[in-house]
Design a binder for these strands. Structure first.
Length: 466
RNA sequence: GGCGCGGUACCCAAGUGGCUAAGGGAGAGGUCUGCAAAACCUCGAUUCGUCGGUUCGAAUCCGACCCGCGCCUCCA
């Protein structure tokens, strides 16, 4: 049984999708005004883990991730660079998809863009006005929170105690209540706008998710994810809009991940600790190691990113890779170890149990590493057969459908030049000319190739980064 | 001020009433090796922020305190 912690109830709940065997998943996507930073990717990787695990458990998953390509920040960014909005966001949308690929994040089925759903938004807003949930004020349209009694349920906010924040904008003075939020912002000089039935203007932020989720997943769907900062007001507002409009329950399970901090401090541009994936890749960090680092801490726990932590993740990952390398490259005797099938089953069971319990990845990784240790002991004693190795490999690769840490095509080949050098070194060693052999080994190391002399002969690896 | 989360070894991190407090990294010792490196093995917290309480029994439950962090109108 799979259980998730539902923000709505603040409890672990058994997961039961609307349609058995099928999961409809909506994940809040990026606002494309800049390159995404590692904090953003913590959320996307958590969502990826969720999705991959559901697929691993034989669910069919339909995932929608929105792309917010019109809002205050994208508009401001486009203005400051003197670009059309679309030309400005294009670059970051493309970068976003490249980053997803670097981190081996499974593609969503739909990536709807806000700017491509303006008419759908106008339609929903009209519906909300007809039902009395929205009103027009100076051309803009606001959601009337007082009409929606469940407002605040997701976040546990008590409306009466809500203090208006400091960022309340001056141009929103005219609302009936400070807490009412904009569905539609009337056309403003110098800003992009759309001509629609409800007038010329642009959408408020929250409406896009209500519109696009229902369009691709239906008015009620299974899971909605995002970072904790989205709980209030964004997801609260989505619920209000969607349920007011449809009269149906919007989402059954709300899953939110906590934030990532850097060196114990909140990430912020002014502190200079806001890393993008690109920056880390430029510093030659392994994207798979970053993926492991972001994956390995439970999603509802705060994650403190440090470079020491990243190096530890690199080392952990190397342990898995070396294990696979052994299984794939050793010459096994014919004799099979009868205990291995039992170990495989036990490991598979624990791996699944871990993730089934609100994505407790630590338990699952423990299962994997425990197995690696046990098998290594047998490996050292040469108590492993070819079938054993095959079975173990197939288990690890099945886990990797969830973890996605092992790129499939990692068959790097060496240049002829380097192969020549390895051969030359072998010759030198055979002649006991160790001085020359060591010199060649050092040269290869400097070009990133590590040589290891084993019983079965020399073997090489590409040096891990750093 | 309101609501909420967390403090487990040198670092990361499971465990949330009772078998030896997982696992990874780092470190130390060993195997292997021409020597290395890599890999592998072994070792490692009488103790879970502090102080009280409940209990036959607490890292786990309760209370107080200390420390760190998040949200409170467009930040994942």
């Amino acid at each position: 049984m799979i259980r998730f912690f539902n923000t709505l109830s603040r409890k672990l709940e058994p997961f039961r999708p609307l349609d058995p065997g099928k999961v409809k998943l909506y994940t809040c996507g990026p606002t494309v005004y800049d390159y995404a930073h590692i904090g953003n990717f913590r959320a996307y990787i958590f969502e990826d883990l969720l999705k991959r695990f559901l697929k691993f458990m034989d669910y069919e998953v339909i995932q929608v991730m929105n792309i917010t390509d019109v809002d205050d920040k994208t508009i401001k960014g486009a203005q400051s660079e003197g670009l059309e909005l679309e030309d400005y966001t294009k670059k970051y949308i493309q970068a976003f998809f490249e980053d997803l690929e670097s981190l081996n994040i499974d593609k969503a089925d739909y990536y709807p863009r806000a700017t491509e759903h303006i008419l759908d938004m106008a339609k929903m807003i009209t519906g909300l006005m007809n039902k009395g949930f929205a009103y027009r004020q100076d051309g803009s349209i606001y959601f009337r929170i007082s009409k929606f009694p469940n407002y605040g349920r997701l976040s546990g906010m008590d409306l009466a105690k809500l203090k208006p924040g400091q960022r309340t904008e001056a141009d929103e003075y005219e609302k009936e209540s400070v807490q009412d939020f904009a569905l539609w912002k009337t056309k403003k000089e110098g800003e992009p706008f759309w001509e629609t039935d409800i007038g010329a203007g642009r959408p408020g932020w929250h409406i896009e998710c209500s519109v696009m989720s229902s369009k691709y997943l239906g008015q009620t769907f299974d899971i909605h994810c995002g970072g904790v900062d989205n709980i209030f007001p964004h997801h609260e507002n989505e619920i209000a809009q969607s349920e007011a409009y449809s009269g149906k329950k919007f989402v059954n399970y709300w899953l939110h991940c906590r934030h990532l901090i850097v060196d114990g401090e909140k990430m912020s541009k002014s502190k200079g600790n806001q890393y993008t994936l690109r920056e880390l890749l430029e510093k030659k960090h392994d994207p798979a190691a970053l993926r492991l680092l972001l994956l390995a801490t439970h999603y509802r726990k705060m994650l403190n990113f440090t470079f020491a932590g990243l190096r530890q993740a690199e080392a952990s990952l190397q342990r898995i890779r070396d294990f696979i390398y052994e299984l794939e490259n050793r010459k096994f005797k014919k004799e099979e170890n009868k205990d291995i099938p039992k170990l495989v089953e036990k490991t598979r069971k624990k791996f699944i149990e871990g993730l089934s319990n609100d994505l407790n990845i630590s338990v699952s990784l423990t299962a994997l590493f425990e197995m690696i240790r046990r098998v290594n002991i047998n490996l050292a004693k040469e108590k492993l057969g070819p079938k054993n190795a095959e079975e173990l490999l197939s288990l690890i690769y099945s886990f990797d459908k969830v973890l996605a840490l092992l790129p499939e095509k990692e068959k790097t080949s060496l240049s002829v030049d380097i192969e020549e050098k390895i051969k030359a070194r072998e010759k030198a060693r055979a002649e006991k000319n160790y001085e020359l052999a060591d010199k060649i080994r050092q040269e290869l190391l400097e070009s990133g190739v590590v040589l290891e002399d084993t019983k079965d002969g020399v073997r090489w690896k590409i040096k891990k980064s750093k």
